[in-house]
């Protein structure tokens, strides 16, 4: 028993060390952070004006302040949950560098998740906080009324990051079969923009389409769910739904990774 808990402790320490390393790694890209922050703010202004024009003339289920908050929070979530992702793992599969990941004592899904959580932590401090502050300076934002919304939102963003991570992991892992994962990545980009609730609140879509997205896909749980929680439109039960999807997607990512291991042919000698 003691042996087992000691092993759990080692695992925990490894995980947190990887999280810290991820944080440090992404915090070194200072220029990129500033550039990204600038772009998030530009798009925040753009989308805020457009969506306020919609909310000002039609019944959307959002009042103007909720709509502004939805825009700026969703804008801040892009780099926090890592919505668009990168092709690091896919590139490593193509070049064969992924062998080094497979030789480590930590499964690749776990080590990449830890690094990604570190990245998300840095993203939350810079690229979430930045646009939200900019939005608050230029627009009238909705502040959550219930104190419990704040911790709930934090948990929701964490789970959204895990779901987003697992989806991106799957997109990258397609390189085990395709070698070049650019096509799947593009498909992911399109879906992540339009179907997560980033371009517009999903309630703008026809009812059956919206229901299908919520029940059958991980997308709404990445952006729409956290923003619904912060503007207090959605029930706290959304977090439970996110928990289910996070577990499901991680399990799928783990399964695909194990299948990919057997597919892997390292190119060159």
């Amino acid at each position: 028993m003691a042996h087992r808990s000691a092993r759990a402790l080692v695992r925990y320490r490894t995980f947190t060390a990887l999280v810290r390393a991820g944080f440090r790694r992404y915090s070194t890209y200072r220029q990129a952070t500033v550039a990204g922050l600038f772009t998030n703010v530009v798009f925040g202004f753009l989308r805020c004006y457009v969506l306020l024009a919609v909310a000002g003339t039609a019944a959307t289920g959002y009042d103007l302040r909720q709509m502004a908050t939805y825009v700026w929070v969703s804008q801040g979530l892009i780099a926090t949950v890592g919505l668009w992702g990168d092709s690091e793992l896919a590139d490593r599969i193509r070049t064969g560098d992924v062998v080094a990941d497979l030789l480590r004592p930590v499964p690749p899904v776990v080590s990449y998740l830890a690094t990604d959580l570190g990245r998300a932590g840095f993203g939350a401090l810079t690229r979430f906080a930045g646009p939200v502050v900019a939005g608050a300076l230029a627009f009238d934002l909705y502040l959550p009324r219930r104190p419990a919304t704040y911790p709930l939102f934090a948990v929701s963003v964490l789970l959204a990051t895990v779901i987003s991570f697992a989806c991106r992991y799957l997109v990258n892992a397609s390189a085990y079969w395709l070698l070049d994962a650019r096509g799947p990545h593009l498909a992911w980009l399109l879906a992540s923009n339009a179907l997560t609730g980033l371009y517009f609140p999903l309630s703008f879509l026809p009812g059956p389409v919206e229901a299908l997205l919520w029940w059958a896909t991980p997308f709404p749980w990445i952006v729409q769910a956290p923003t619904d929680i912060v503007v207090e439109r959605g029930s706290p039960a959304l977090v439970a739904g996110q928990l289910v999807w996070a577990g499901l997607m991680l399990a799928v990512a783990g399964y695909v990774q194990r299948r990919g291991d057997r597919r892997l042919v390292v190119q060159g000698g």
């Binding site: 024009a53 919609v54 003339t57 593009l186 498909a187 399109l190 371009y199 517009f200 879509l205």
Partner: peptide, 23 residues
């Protein structure tokens, strides 16, 4: 995928008009 991107961008514009009559 890239050709779908155009369609999706333009559909996004139309989605707003599903909700609002004019922008």
């Amino acid at each position: 995928g890239t050709s779908l991107a155009v369609t999706i961008d333009l559909l996004a514009v139309l989605v707003f008009f599903r909700v609002a009559r004019s922008l």
